[in-house]
Design a protein around this nucleic acid. Sequence first.
RNA 1: GUGGGCGUAGCUCAAUCGGUUAGAGCACUGGACUGUGGCUCCAGAGGUUGUGGGUUCGAUUCCCAUCGCUCACCCCA
Length: 418
Amino acid sequence: MEIRKIKGTKDILPDETEIFLAAEKVLRETMIKYGYREIRIPTFEQTELFKKGTGVSTDIVTQQMYSFTDRGERNISLRPEGTPSVVRAYLENNLHKKRLFQKFFYYGRMFRQESPQSGRLREFNQFGIESIGSLSPQIDAETIILGLEVLRNIGLKRIEIHLNSIGCDKCRPSYKKSLKEYLKPKLNILCNDCKRRFNANILRVLDCKRETCRKELQNSPVSIDYLCDECKNHFSKVKELLQKSNVSFTLNPYLVRGLDYYTKTVYEFISPVLSAQDAVGGGGRYDRMIELFGGPPIPAIGFACGMERILLAVEKEGGEKRKKEKLDCYIATMDDKTDEEGFLLLNNLREKGLSCEKDFLNRSLKAQMKDANRLGADFVVIIGPEEMEKNEITIRMMSDSSQKRIEFSVDAIVKEIR
RNA sequence: GUGGGCGUAGCUCAAUCGGUUAGAGCACUGGACUGUGGCUCCAGAGGUUGUGGGUUCGAUUCCCAUCGCUCACCCCA
């Protein structure tokens, strides 16, 4: 086999597909329960959308997008995340003129050209929500509570919530300024990456994982001390609502998300059982994006979760194995003539709604029985020459090995199985 | 892009200091049971040891290159 899958992509084989399907069903049900409605957005968009939405200073846009020029000389990118598309669709379809407040969720594949490692692929599945139109701290709390419930419903037991507020356009500049002043004299102690971040996006220095850098950050100014009154009140209300809703969280002043558009509340859902890539989901407010896209000043908040990471964490927690699909009936045959009868019966039983299978390799009866067992068949219908002569079949109940001869008719067989 | 680890049967893994025919479990096929699954026993099939080169009397083992996978940094879901 010389053609192999592309690095960072994954074949999801039937056993695993069933796990995905189960999780997808659960997450849709949960979203709908909270009043979110599914939106399906294109897999690729104009590159410009992500430059503007996700942000030109992010790693995603500068180095991770699958971008190409199509035959019409248009610059196109496979979506690296969902939020800019949802906002685009929201404005392009004039949804903001229909209702003041709307809630969406999406589910689908995202693409980012990064080095793959545990919990990180180049093509991966994300689901996310976007709650557009309300500045209420209740919505911040709702999204966090919803995220927590979705993750739990999918089967995650241990989830930690990290919470922070990074302020708004009014208060963040003064915070950045004092952080800069604090770090400037320490610049030569910091790692090379942090030196780069110091100029590119100083907030990112905060979540450097190097011991030496962390040490220097111990007494650094934190964003919550610099919040303006509006942001401060908003954040305390969010915290209060979560506490009153019995949602425990950790305040993490070093939580700075890598996307440009966040304002006020930011958070991450973290699984303690995962290794380096331990955030199964993350999100926050992006109150300026809709205006940035040419719409009215409408606030919004949302999060995104990575399916593969969640399922990895569920597995590591020792989550329950899904039980395999049952087969109602397996048809075993003996020679050419009975085999053809078997094929016709197969179709007739399926028409009656039964899941049904037979052998297509002319295998021995013994092999067919083994196959039936492997497939988890409840019943085996055996058609042999002896049965054919009397216009009968043998029906065997696999659970207790009992079997009997009955009339060879679809109705009689269906009656036995039901 | 940088660094570490690993490539042996379908899968999970052995193989002593470099030693002659590369093994085991599971899975698979057949038989014991000639028209009957699971349990047991017996037998069988299955390998370019990732690929190419080098060292050596001899390489799965050592060296080089290359491809692939994986983990970590960066960043994110």
